[in-house]
Amino acid sequence: MKIKHSTKFHGFTLVETTVGLGISSIVFAAVIAASVGLQKSFNAIDNYFATHMQQIRIVDYLNRDVKRALVVTTSVNLQRVSMTLPNYIIKAGDPEAVANPSLIGTPRTPTISYLRSGPQVDYGATTTSVVYAISGQSILRTENGVITTIASSTDQLVPVTTDVELANTEYTITSVTFLPIFTSGGATAERSGTTVCATSYLRNRRRG
């Protein structure tokens, strides 16, 4: 058996090559453009999403602390939240820990005192101070002087907390916005479209 190769199609003509290259260029250009666009779009969404997650984290941090707070106050510009929390856990240096070091890190049994406003539950003689504030691109949580960065983004995160005090309870409304660094078609980025809002009641301030 002999396989016969035709020599008729050994090469492409100049026209064929030109047309082929032209089509290929268009296809690859489209693919590259699509890839770049897709990548940019993905980066934009990913960045937006990452900042959005930090919004949620800020709200969750604040809500967790507000719920267990004894006192909550906000600054005039509403961007700094100060609160007082019960000392639930025994720390080194506390009177209980001095008497019995094995109690360090364990929950404290509260004591009861009777005040004009009624009976009061005290977790130790002191309380914990927690402050939320903006510092540059970061949102900081400071607990008794110890700073923790809870959110950090180039998208200019701004939390705003309003403290509402009622006769029988107190609650806070926190809204967090940011300015997306990626915009579509050069449109002016809008903070308002990024708002995440949450309300949290002080569980230790209720009557009835």
């Binding site: 267990r68 019960p86 856990i89 929950p107 009976p119 977790y123 230790n204």
Partner: peptide, 9 residues
């Protein structure tokens, strides 16, 4: 209920 704390250790 007069007191509420969360264990966040």
């Amino acid at each position: 209920i007069t007191s509420y704390v969360e264990d966040i250790r």
